[in-house]
Design a protein around this nucleic acid. Structure first.
Length: 191
DNA sequence: TTAATGATGGGCT
DNA sequence: GCCCATCATTAAA
């Protein structure tokens, strides 16, 4: 039940993306706890084309240049938000996309936010996850390492078996093996 | 079962 | 104007 400190997020992005698997994403919404086990992530490095920060700082991407542990939230396809966690040092411009979690706490609230029943489709994709946790552009720039409204906890479970593949839904740098997920977990997106 | 498509809006080459 | 780190719905097979 321990909030993960900033030092965790200052490590290299690929290591952080893998280390986040099995950790607990926690959101406090109107005093209620929403939580899920992170089962799928993707890394975005500042030196490859598919990274938003690749072309430098803009109004949208300036959050990606904050220091590790800050939330970077952006609107995609006009209707969904994606939650990222900035990694490494201030000014670097890299982050980890949280793609899917396995719901643990606050499942009824997630079902209301998603307008769905059941468990499997609640947060098995980046847009679904943001909807289930009520994450919007208002959360852009929040300090996840500070451990307040939006945070990540380490429950000291054993390290999961990690699978690696190319990232999903991108056109550039599509072959880089920067997607990670927990082997066999049914809440990973796309099967 | 898989494949195709519409929704919807901010950022940018 | 076109692109986009998506999803739910519909159509086809």
């Amino acid at each position: 039940m321990l909030n993960i400190p900033r030092s965790f997020y200052l490590n290299d992005t690929l290591s952080v993306a893998k280390a986040l698997l099995g950790k607990i994403l926690v959101r406090y919404l109107n005093g209620k706890r929403l939580a899920g086990i992170i089962v799928e992530t993707e890394a975005y490095l500042e030196n490859e084309e598919s990274c938003h920060a690749y072309r430098g700082i803009t109004a949208r991407t300036k959050t990606m240049f904050e220091e590790g542990g800050i939330a970077y939230v952006y609107l995609i396809y006009g209707m969904y938000y994606c939650l990222n966690i900035v990694t490494e040092s201030q000014g670097k411009g890299c982050a980890v996309l949280i793609r899917a979690v396995e719901p643990v706490d606050g499942i009824e609230i997630m079902q209301q936010l998603r307008k769905k029943t059941g468990l499997h489709d609640l947060a098995s994709g980046p847009g679904k996850l943001a909807q289930a946790f009520n994450i919007t552009k208002l959360d852009n720039g929040l300090d996840i390492a500070a451990g307040t409204a939006l945070t990540i906890e380490n429950h000291n479970d054993k390290d999961p078996e990690i699978m690696t593949t190319p990232r999903i839904g991108i056109k550039k740098a599509k072959d880089l093996p920067y997607r990670f997920f927990i082997n066999g977990n049914q809440f990973v997106s796309q099967g």
